[in-house]
């Protein structure tokens, strides 16, 4: 089992300019901005499951990311 991050598009406020998870994810090219829907999306194959994105998203009270088992 391996934990990866998952974005709940309804709770994500990237359309309002939030880029916190994209800024702080330690892995390059791992969280992308879907420029049509204007939501953050995780590239699962690059995610190491560190949970830093959850920390920064929760700290801003968006609570849009959770870890899921794969």
């Amino acid at each position: 089992m391996y934990n990866v991050a998952e974005v709940n598009a309804e709770a994500c406020v990237a359309q309002k300019g939030c880029r916190l998870c994209i800024m702080y994810c330690p892995e390059a090219n791992c969280i992308q901005l879907d420029s049509q829907k204007m939501k953050a999306v995780i590239v699962e194959s690059r995610c190491k499951g560190c949970e830093l994105c959850v920390v920064v998203c929760d700290a801003a009270k968006h609570n849009a990311i959770k870890m899921v088992a794969r």
Partner: peptide, 18 residues
């Protein structure tokens, strides 16, 4: 970040390494 391709590919540093 998030829209352009970054100049780093996948590497083996620990998860969460600053």
């Amino acid at each position: 970040f998030g829209t352009a391709t970054e100049l780093i590919a996948e590497h083996s540093l620990c998860a969460g390494c600053p």
